[in-house]
Design a protein around this nucleic acid. Sequence first.
DNA 1: TGCGACAAAATTGGCGCCAATAATTTCGCC
DNA 2: GGCGAAATTATTGGCGCCAATTTTGTCGCA
Lengths: 220, 220
Amino acid sequence: MNERKRKNTSTRRAMLANEIAQAIRLRAFRPGEWLRQIDLEERFEATRFDVRSALDELAVRKTIEHVPNRGYRVAEVDLKTYEEILATRIILERATAEGVVARIDDAAIARLDALAAQFSAAVTTGSRTEQSEINRAFHQFMYSFCGNAVLEEMIWGLRDRGRGSQITVWSSHELLQKSDREHFEMMAALKARDAERLAALIATHIIKGGVVGPVPVEPG
Amino acid sequence: MNERKRKNTSTRRAMLANEIAQAIRLRAFRPGEWLRQIDLEERFEATRFDVRSALDELAVRKTIEHVPNRGYRVAEVDLKTYEEILATRIILERATAEGVVARIDDAAIARLDALAAQFSAAVTTGSRTEQSEINRAFHQFMYSFCGNAVLEEMIWGLRDRGRGSQITVWSSHELLQKSDREHFEMMAALKARDAERLAALIATHIIKGGVVGPVPVEPG
DNA sequence: TGCGACAAAATTGGCGCCAATAATTTCGCC
DNA sequence: GGCGAAATTATTGGCGCCAATTTTGTCGCA
């Protein structure tokens, strides 16, 4: 009966914040780049008020940085913080293994196999952002079975924060292929219901995929 | 030379948000309670604009909840979410043990001993909020040596979120005394540089301090 | 007396205006 | 011609106003 009325502010704000966040993920805005409110108004067809709200939200989530009287810019993550983010991601993402192994079902495994295959295809033919989005989908779907929504939230919050680093993810084709292979190793561990092995794979996946060269990361 | 100019908004907003957050921690506002903007204006002597900004920030941090056209209220955490928060806290806080043990020095140990002693005293003589604040100070100071600022942030964000549960922390005097004892056991593990033992103690500390058998939760 | 509808009051929330600040250009002086 | 200062332009950000919405209070009717 009732047609859906126009969205209220908090919804619009959240949606816009997510749109901007995605744009940042897709590197439409690069780390350090200023986000001019006027541009965002036009690009996303939103009012200035909504743009500001969304930017404030992203600043609280540390996706962007606010400089008084200068504006908002995509956060640039320094090396130390980046390493801390990776270390914390390892802690959190490892911890999903147990729950995932316990709760995953055959249908989900099939879907994950498909996503892993999609990633394989994207490694050779797809664009950087395609690879990135498929990879994200793979992990997001897998972690969604961990049985802890709070834990999931933290993981995705951290992953978004890590985007602001100068370090190139998958800096070489070999690393990309390694990530690809690791997905299938994870699937094997998953099918064998081997939580410990899955956790170990997740840890190396994060380290190898994210850091180039000598790795000075000691979790904790 | 230059007298310090008036604080800019983002600073005022952050300060006000922290003040309100502390008030919530101290139970000046109870879970489910509505935070009327007019009241907050007077109580904290802030403009309506700043109040709203601060409330928005706290809503993003999930300390409070925003209901369109109704306002903001202290988040009520349901049991499932509360358990997830505790589980995630255990994951994160355990992970500090290694770094803390590696980095702690004698001066810090002395300070922690003092805080543990303060807590002991507060167990018998202090108020609930005093106990809570000293306990917080103890853990905050300890975790500050973990060498991972991002990890620390996550922990304190989660701890704040947990305040919104109906579950009474330290529901009995015995649990309070148990917490007290555990602080000293942690100190022993710390002095022995036994990270594994410290991690185990942290885990039980969180579980025992936070959950009390079958929980009489009444939906608000 | 209980209940529903209508009216009045209280509260929230969208938004535009313009002051404050930073960035850019122009101009004058050496 | 180069350099610094002043004027111009661009952008951000504080804030108050009033509309939209909810809550509270009142009245009439069964």
